Simulated assay, not measured.
Amino acid sequence: MATKTTENKDNSPVKDSSATAETAASASKKNIQADNASVNENEMKNSPLHKFFVSALKDIYFAENAIIDALDKMQEAATTEELKEAFEDHQFQTKKHVSRLEKVFKLIDETPEKKECKAIKGIIEEGEEIIKSTEEGSMTRDAALIIAAQKVEHYEIATYGGLAQLAITMGHDKAADLLEKTLQEEEDTDYDLTEIAETYINFDAEQEE
């Protein structure tokens, strides 16, 4: 905006004070908006919903790391190469999910931390018991391992689905996109495990004596 000028009696230019006042008012408005944004952000971070959201992220962060280790044992225990490969692929995918969660923490200005997840610990322990109680090299073991793996998937699907919706509610759109991407991958894995079971593993297991 050009600054208007007038002339004094001695013909020297004088700046229009209205332009200066308008500039000052604009700067003041921006400062107020910045202050309000800072207050709103602090209020959000102190809200019960935000605290729950972060706690749930720490819970699934612990779970994903625990699942990586569990998949090693499940892959080793599996009978068929197809199921072994499925567990190997899921382990690789789970490592990506851990990295993606770390990005979510960063997007909401929080530090990635693990909080013990009793639910996933129980599911993993159940999977370990399945390995002990089924015969090595049997299709029955594979059928049981698929059920154990799908219990893991269903826990993750429920968690990521809920977290994605909370992220949308709180305006964390980029975080929501990442969480929804992981949700879709978990659903795809669950479907793939069902396909493996229904193609032949369950039928072959039924024939075992």
Rank of each mutant, 00 (worst) to 15 (best):
Q150R: 12
L83C: 04
E64S: 01
L71F: 06
H172S: 08
K118P: 04
V152C: 04
S133N: 15
A25F: 11
G171Q: 03
F87W: 05
S17A: 12
E186I: 01
M139C: 08
T94M: 02
K29R: 10
M139P: 04
A70R: 01
H97K: 01
K106H: 13
I60T: 05
A144Q: 09
K114Q: 15
D177W: 06
K95L: 08
E126T: 04
D190R: 07
E22D: 15
A21R: 04
L107M: 13
F62T: 00
L145Y: 03
A148Y: 05
D35H: 11
D109W: 06
M1K: 10
E153C: 00
E209L: 11
E113F: 06
F105H: 02
H154F: 07
A144H: 08
Y160R: 00
D10K: 14
M139F: 15
P13L: 06
K84P: 02
E76G: 07
K9S: 11
F92Y: 10
D109L: 07
A77C: 04
M170G: 00
S99R: 12
E88Y: 09
S28H: 09
A27R: 09
I68P: 02
Y61F: 07
L49Q: 12
F53T: 00
S18K: 14
K114M: 13
T3S: 08
T189I: 01
K45M: 11
K73V: 01
P112Q: 00
I130G: 04
M44F: 11
I124H: 01
Y160F: 05
A70P: 00
K30Y: 14
F53H: 02
Q207M: 12
H50C: 08
E128A: 01
Y155M: 05
T80A: 03
K106C: 11
T111A: 10
K30P: 06
I168N: 08
L57W: 01
F203G: 08
T6V: 10
E113N: 08
T80S: 06
N36D: 10
K174R: 09
K115H: 10
L178I: 09
N40M: 15
N42G: 12
N31R: 14
R100E: 09
H154P: 00
A148E: 03
D188P: 02
I168M: 07
I32G: 08
A2N: 12
L57N: 03
E185H: 04
L193Y: 14
E125H: 10
N46W: 10
N40Q: 15
M170P: 02
Y61V: 00
D204N: 12
V54N: 03
E125V: 04
K106Y: 14
A158C: 04
T134F: 12
A27H: 10
S133P: 09
Y160E: 01
K118T: 14
A24N: 15
F53A: 01
V39S: 12
K15T: 13
E76T: 12
H172N: 06
R141D: 01
H154M: 06
R141C: 04
N8F: 13
A164I: 00
L145N: 02
M1Y: 11
T169N: 02
E128D: 05
K114N: 10
N40L: 15
K15A: 15
E102G: 05
F87G: 01
